[in-house]
């Protein structure tokens, strides 16, 4: 058995599994997909930027900002 056959069989396993999903299985996948879109697209992009990564380009700048916050606002 060559490597290609193994990959093809694994792929077929997944394809066949999704193709034969039961009614409740399909419903759950719709929920997972909708939730993924809400969490990873809507929430992450609109509401949850990584503040330090967004505002500073280098680790040196990020650490300087945190040090400023920790030492100037005591």
């Amino acid at each position: 058995m060559n490597r290609r056959n193994i990959f093809a069989r694994v792929l077929f396993f997944y394809v066949d599994g999704f193709r034969n999903l039961s009614g409740w299985g399909k419903k759950l996948w719709i929920i997972i997909l909708l939730k993924g879109i809400v969490i990873f697209v809507l929430m992450k992009l609109l509401f949850f930027p990584n503040v330090l990564n967004q505002n500073y380009d280098t680790d040196a700048e990020r650490s300087n900002h945190v040090l400023e916050t920790l030492t100037k606002s005591k």
Partner: peptide
């Protein structure tokens, strides 16, 4: 952690 607790995340 990245948005609301950035000082903590870095620390």
């Amino acid at each position: 952690f990245g948005t609301n607790w950035s000082n903590y995340s870095w620390f």
